[in-house]
Amino acid sequence: MPHDVANAVEEVASHLDTGIGVHLHNDTGCGVANALAGVSAGAIQVQGTINGYGERTGNCDLIAIIANLTLKMGIQTIPENRLNLLTPVSHHVAELVNITLNPQQPYTGASAFAHKAGLHVSAISRRPDAYEHIPPVEIGNGTRFLVSEMAGRSTLELKAKEIGIDLDGKILGDVVETLKKLEYEGYHFEVADASLELLMRGASGWVQDFFKVDKFHVDMNHVGSGSRAWNEIAVDVDTRAVVDLNVKGQKLVGLGDGNGPVNAIDTALRSVLLRNYPELEGISLVDYKVRVLDTEKGTGAITRVLIDSTNGEEIWTTIGVSENIIEASWQALVDAIVYGLLHSDNDRVI
């Protein structure tokens, strides 16, 4: 516990004339608190890991420790002009170790400075310091305004400013009504910021010109005498997707094989798009989630698909909803690619 660490550091320091370091784990959920207590008691070095990664429940998180020591306790750690690299480093390390960063990660998570509810969001535009414990830009993060069917016009206005687009009164009203309709159908934009941005850009008159989809289809062949792999029954499943696209005035056909329909569609899209957009090579899917919305309909239920994608620096979420899980996946996948391409070149973002 923090008081135990502080007592131990003080006791050791009283018998030594050299600097003391602490190495702490997070087994009790006090890793960061223990490290801060150790420094307060005289330790001059803290050992830990980025994002707290480590065995069992992890080590103490160096990102939170650096931010707390520097911004809360006034103790110099890294050069001040490098504090804004904390969020990019946190996300980059998560990508390297292939662990999706907890959105509620202190300081650097996607939800660390997220705000919802009309009055709350309206107030933060006037007094951000009343709702955010630090300006998020100091550590390379940013304020996020979550939008749902309960969002008011003020929330959407702030979201539009965050994105960098202008929406007049009538368009804002139309977006509010569209959100209500879509959320009734099963969309949930509070957790799909990227799809929301594309929707709002579309309402402003923007049309994505990366590619146009004419049609696509997916074939799956199941060959074998059974379906239970754990019974050692020989089963082969082949999945192939074909997409017909129009890219920069050219009609192109992409073919893709995969270990499932989503992987096959993604492979087919990339087989065409990579020729024109090599930056797509750096964009990858990191999570795929499916939720059944109306369970009483059984296998005919509407499904919601959420896809998390990354370019190694940023993670974004897109959404698709349909009674057909492949169609829902297609919607989310196309949004993910369009958003990634849109933000791969700042000159393209309008």
Rank of each mutant, 00 (worst) to 15 (best):
residue 1 M to G: 07
residue 1 M to C: 06
residue 3 H to V: 11
residue 5 V to C: 12
residue 7 N to F: 00
residue 8 A to C: 06
residue 10 E to S: 14
residue 12 V to Y: 12
residue 18 T to P: 00
residue 18 T to I: 15
residue 21 G to N: 00
residue 22 V to P: 07
residue 24 L to G: 10
residue 25 H to Y: 14
residue 35 A to F: 02
residue 37 A to C: 08
residue 38 G to C: 02
residue 43 A to P: 13
residue 49 T to W: 05
residue 50 I to N: 06
residue 51 N to P: 01
residue 56 R to A: 08
residue 59 N to L: 12
residue 60 C to A: 15
residue 61 D to N: 14
residue 66 I to V: 10
residue 71 L to I: 10
residue 80 E to D: 12
residue 80 E to V: 04
residue 81 N to H: 14
residue 84 N to P: 14
residue 85 L to C: 08
residue 90 S to R: 05
residue 91 H to V: 04
residue 92 H to N: 07
residue 98 N to E: 13
residue 101 L to W: 11
residue 104 Q to T: 13
residue 107 Y to R: 00
residue 108 T to A: 13
residue 109 G to I: 08
residue 112 A to K: 10
residue 112 A to E: 03
residue 114 A to V: 10
residue 114 A to N: 08
residue 116 K to T: 15
residue 118 G to C: 00
residue 120 H to L: 11
residue 125 S to M: 10
residue 131 Y to W: 14
residue 132 E to T: 03
residue 135 P to F: 11
residue 144 R to I: 09
residue 147 V to R: 06
residue 153 R to A: 00
residue 156 L to E: 01
residue 161 K to N: 04
residue 162 E to V: 10
residue 162 E to G: 02
residue 165 I to V: 10
residue 167 L to A: 07
residue 170 K to C: 09
residue 171 I to C: 08
residue 172 L to P: 12
residue 173 G to H: 12
residue 174 D to L: 11
residue 176 V to L: 14
residue 180 K to A: 11
residue 183 E to Y: 11
residue 189 F to C: 01
residue 193 D to I: 05
residue 195 S to L: 09
residue 196 L to W: 04
residue 204 S to D: 09
residue 204 S to N: 12
residue 207 V to K: 15
residue 210 F to L: 03
residue 211 F to T: 04
residue 216 F to I: 00
residue 218 V to I: 15
residue 221 N to I: 12
residue 226 G to Y: 13
residue 227 S to N: 02
residue 228 R to H: 01
residue 230 W to H: 10
residue 231 N to K: 13
residue 234 A to D: 14
residue 235 V to W: 00
residue 236 D to K: 15
residue 240 R to Y: 04
residue 243 V to I: 12
residue 249 G to E: 05
residue 250 Q to M: 01
residue 250 Q to F: 03
residue 252 L to D: 04
residue 256 G to P: 04
residue 258 G to C: 00
residue 259 N to E: 15
residue 259 N to M: 15
residue 260 G to K: 04
residue 261 P to G: 02
residue 262 V to W: 02
residue 265 I to K: 02
residue 268 A to C: 05
residue 273 L to M: 11
residue 273 L to D: 07
residue 277 Y to Q: 02
residue 278 P to V: 02
residue 279 E to R: 02
residue 280 L to V: 00
residue 284 S to D: 03
residue 286 V to S: 08
residue 288 Y to A: 07
residue 288 Y to W: 11
residue 293 L to K: 06
residue 294 D to E: 10
residue 297 K to E: 12
residue 300 G to L: 15
residue 303 T to Q: 04
residue 311 N to S: 03
residue 314 E to R: 09
residue 317 T to D: 08
residue 319 I to H: 03
residue 321 V to Q: 02
residue 321 V to G: 00
residue 325 I to G: 05
residue 330 W to G: 07
residue 335 D to K: 05
residue 335 D to P: 05
residue 335 D to E: 08
residue 335 D to T: 09
residue 337 I to K: 08
residue 338 V to Y: 04
residue 340 G to E: 04
residue 343 H to E: 02
residue 347 D to C: 00
